[in-house]
């Protein structure tokens, strides 16, 4: 198991270095960093001197090394647009995105998984069919459209909920939280539903498909033939075997939630990283783009690692010990 984790860790490092390379290439070669730092009236000599001072004339590998070294402590330089350190910008925005993602993830999993299990067990029930139909509509509704519709009904027509921003936040150290104020919680409702809805329907459908697959297995039939009650067959035998694929799905969906936060934040003007990123793309603010890229990659790598380790916990076949597989 240790060897497996080390192997995965190594792979993760390779992935991170690849992403860092892309981010670095973006930073260094797309657009001219000097141009973005100095005014129009700077002379050529001054530019050359600045270039030398910043080490931009050094060999590629040394520059890349410096980039990785700085990135690993969160240092990505100054934002072209905001003229502030990227580190600060991200630190400001991070809590907003993580709080939104957390609430949405809990919402999506807590509703999606039970619904998936239910629709698989009661395949032909009326409620199941209704859920399935609704879920198809849910998969067909783009996230931004869900947001717009929510804004139209609850913001514009009914005027119940705020349509943009986080409301009042409370500062806890460098973290800012919207969980502790009424307006913060109210502001969270629509964005988190928007973000969760699409993922929820997806999770539900995937869990249902996996569960149906397991229910067809021979060992389920054998368990029934031994007289085990339906509850035990469904929950002790079928559900646990569904868990492995569900973990994968959950991992992937957590990643998706962070990515789809870009859209939600853009619809609701939610002051998170996604909004920062989409604005950076519009303004060609390369340091911000590079930082976001590396950070997101880091999140994904961590999620994947956790998923892989969970596999080991759940599935004994992966903990295979060759010596125990005896012959006759």
């Amino acid at each position: 198991m240790l060897a497996f984790i080390l192997k995965r860790l190594l792979q993760s490092v390779v992935v991170m270095l690849t992403v860092a390379l892309i981010a670095f290439a973006l930073f260094r070669y797309v657009g001219d960093p000097i141009n973005n730092m100095v005014g129009q009236d700077t002379t050529l000599e001054e530019r050359a001197e600045l270039k030398e001072r910043l080490g931009l004339n050094d060999p590629f590998i040394i520059q890349f090394y410096r980039f990785v070294r700085d990135a690993s402590v969160g240092e990505f330089g100054l934002s072209y647009q905001h003229r502030r350190p990227v580190k600060e910008l991200i630190a400001e925005r991070l809590p907003a995105t993580l709080e939104l993602a957390l609430v949405s993830a809990i919402l999506a999993l807590a509703i999606g998984i039970p619904m998936g299990v239910y629709t698989a067990l009661k395949r032909y029930g009326f409620l199941s069919r209704t859920f399935m139909t609704i879920s198809l509509v849910g998969v067909s509704l783009p996230t931004f459209l869900i947001g717009i519709l929510l804004i139209l009904f609850f913001g514009v027509i009914l005027r119940w909920l705020p349509t943009f921003g986080r409301g009042d936040v409370v500062e806890i150290g460098w973290w800012t939280s919207g969980f502790l104020t009424a307006s913060g919680l109210k502001s969270l409702i629509m964005p988190s539903i928007t973000l969760a809805l699409f993922q929820m329907t997806l999770i539900m459908r995937l869990v249902r498909a996996e569960m149906l697959e397991v229910l067809r297995a021979d060992f389920i039939k054998f368990a029934r033939a031994r007289g085990l009650p339906t509850r035990a067959v469904h929950f002790r035998h079928a559900l646990k075997n569904t868990l492995v694929p569900v973990i994968t799905i959950t991992g992937l969906q957590l990643g998706s939630i962070i990515a789809f936060a870009i859209i939600t934040e853009s619809v609701f003007q939610w002051p998170g990283m996604g909004l920062l990123f989409i604005q950076a793309i519009g303004e060609v603010d390369i340091p911000v783009m590079a930082a976001y890229l590396v950070l997101i990659a880091f999140f994904f790598v961590v999620i994947n690692m956790v998923v892989d380790i969970l596999y080991f916990v759940v599935d004994p076949r992966l903990r295979v010990d060759k010596a125990l597989v005896n012959g006759q």
Binding site: F260, I262, L293, I296
Partner: peptide, 13 residues
Amino acid sequence: VQLSFPAILIALL
């Protein structure tokens, strides 16, 4: 590796 990143993010990038 690509699969662990959502499609929309890759398209966006």
